[in-house]
Simulated scan of single mutants.
Amino acid sequence: MSQHPRPVRVTVVDDHVLFAESVALTLEAEGYLVKRLDITAPPATLASVLATALRTVPRVVLLDLDLGRVGDGTRLIAPLTASGAAVVALTATSDLADWGESLRQGAKTVLSKASPLHEVMTTIRSVCDGRPVLRSQERQALIDTAVRERDATREIRTRLDRLTRREQEVLGALMRGEQVREIARARVVSEATVRTQIKSILAKLETGSQIAAIGAAYRAGWRPPG
């Protein structure tokens, strides 16, 4: 067990109750002061979760990046880090750009939610003891991946802004799986008109197919008007 002059405060922010309780009980057995935040009770928001977490004055925060209806836990990393807390992020995604963004925001490291409990515990102990948990080269590589993805997404959004209102509506229909005939019928235009609009969409997005255009829109988190 790690030895500290005073018990280290660890705050667990995770909407997976069983996992959070398992971590909390194991840490408490080792002498840590653990606070598990209940974020399942309404009307929890990112702001209220942050305020509650800060009141616990944590040395370390174990933070789930997907907080369900509460929102994206990544947005809590920077303010928690600014308060002096060390953040260990947990995520179910394998997207390295998302991992890198968490590190860019200030997290000490990122762990997969598929990680065994003993690995999570080892990481928390290392962070509490001030030991490194991620090699600097690996950390920078992940951050670079996040920056590249952010820049690519920004470029896609710039291209999406070039679309006219009608083209946005057509792209939205394509994203819903509608065919040219259905789009033309719904908008009372000819199929040739719809194909012309699709051709314009592909040109403006600089993509070679409808599938690529749809993928670009989803990648940028774009939503059609209305």
Rank of each mutant, 00 (worst) to 15 (best):
R6D: 13
V10T: 05
D15P: 07
E21A: 15
V23Y: 01
E30Y: 09
G31L: 12
L37K: 03
P42Q: 09
S48K: 13
V49Y: 02
A51W: 06
T52P: 02
L54F: 05
V61K: 00
D64R: 02
D64H: 03
D66Y: 09
L67T: 00
R69H: 15
V70A: 03
L76W: 02
A78K: 00
A89G: 02
A92D: 12
S94I: 13
L96K: 09
G100I: 03
L103Q: 00
Q105K: 08
A107P: 01
L111P: 00
T123A: 08
R125F: 03
A146K: 03
A146W: 02
D151T: 15
A152L: 14
T153F: 06
T153M: 12
E155P: 14
R157S: 13
L160F: 11
L163G: 00
T164Q: 07
R166T: 09
E167L: 10
E169L: 09
E182P: 11
I183L: 06
R187W: 08
V189C: 12
R195Q: 14
I201C: 02
T207W: 08
G208T: 04
G208V: 02
A212E: 11
A212K: 11
G215N: 07
Y218M: 15
G221P: 11
W222S: 08
R223C: 14
P225C: 05
G226M: 12
